[in-house]
Design a protein around this nucleic acid. Structure first.
Lengths: 158, 158
DNA sequence: CGGAATAGTAAACGTGGTTGACGAACGTGG
DNA sequence: CCACGTTCGTCAACCACGTTTACTATTCCG
């Protein structure tokens, strides 16, 4: 047992996927902080994206993100506190409280999209466009994506 | 503003990387639970891997994982509670408490490696071996991996 | 109109992190 | 040889993000 375990090939794939994701997210938020959005946390971009331009409710947001309505509500609370979301009463249903993106939230969302585009351009500059699209195609094939709805209205701007 | 935003290409890359990672991790833990390790949580495999065969201390574990020694200590507590790690006194330094993988922990680690190998084989069956190695190579190129030390002794069994 | 379904909130809890403080043990220089 | 500085572990308080259970208020519908 003094000899180290041999390297297992399967271990590297998840680590590399995670490292790639973390690299993109870390770069994104470093740049977002530089552009005036230091409070934006990694999850917030997904949430803002899931709220969408038309607004939504906490319950529907939870369904879109694959989390409970309570968790969605608490996340909305935090984003309201930092000024990226707002809650308004729904005049047509007194039970509902519409969640909407504020102008500041829309600015953060727009900048996030631009930064992600630039980061992807860095990947295509280094690897070549074909390699990046091949990588995306392969991940689309293998990632069952049953843990959240990629095709939900609001994701990727529809 | 009634028209939806056009789809931004940069948004998809991080989502796909995350989806790929989550798919692997979810499949791993579903299989681990089937094989007698339902308590093993996604992070635990990384921690067991980082402890390594020779054991380590909470402080060094924190450095390997890029987290504080307090966080590493609490994670070790949880893994001790479920029987995957043990703490023993260091006879050569009364301040230190060595953290070691128990036989049960070693079993979970071995099964994780085998399951990851099988999952990677599924990827090569679907995409072809060249595509998977190309994907890994490209991620190695782009993932700066400055958020944790991939080359630390203990990671990937050396 | 009354019961079922739905939206939101509240409370308690678990997990995984942080920072600050502190005692005990180590090691080294005067 | 001993006092001081460093290191290891832990405690406490806190935050982010998620869960389940329980509850109220409102709306929908037979």
């Amino acid at each position: 047992m003094a000899t180290p375990e041999p390297a297992r090939p399967g271990f590297q794939l998840p680590l590399l996927l995670l490292a790639g994701f973390r690299t993109l997210i870390d770069d994104l938020h470093a740049e977002l902080a530089r552009e005036g959005h230091p409070e934006l946390r990694p999850l917030h971009g997904f949430v803002l994206q899931a709220v969408g331009a038309d607004g939504t409710t906490a319950t529907e947001l939870g369904q879109r993100l694959g989390i409970s309505k309570q968790a969605a509500g608490k996340t909305v609370d935090r984003l309201v506190a930092v000024g990226y979301l707002e809650r308004v009463d729904d005049p047509s249903d007194a039970r509902r409280r519409l969640v909407r993106v504020t102008p500041r939230g829309a600015d953060g969302l727009r900048r996030s999209a631009e930064i992600f585009d630039r980061l992807r351009a860095q990947w295509t500059d280094t690897l070549g466009p074909e390699r990046v699209t091949a990588l995306e195609d392969d991940l689309r094939t293998m990632a069952s994506a049953n843990w959240f709805r990629l095709d939900v209205p609001g994701w990727f701007g529809g």
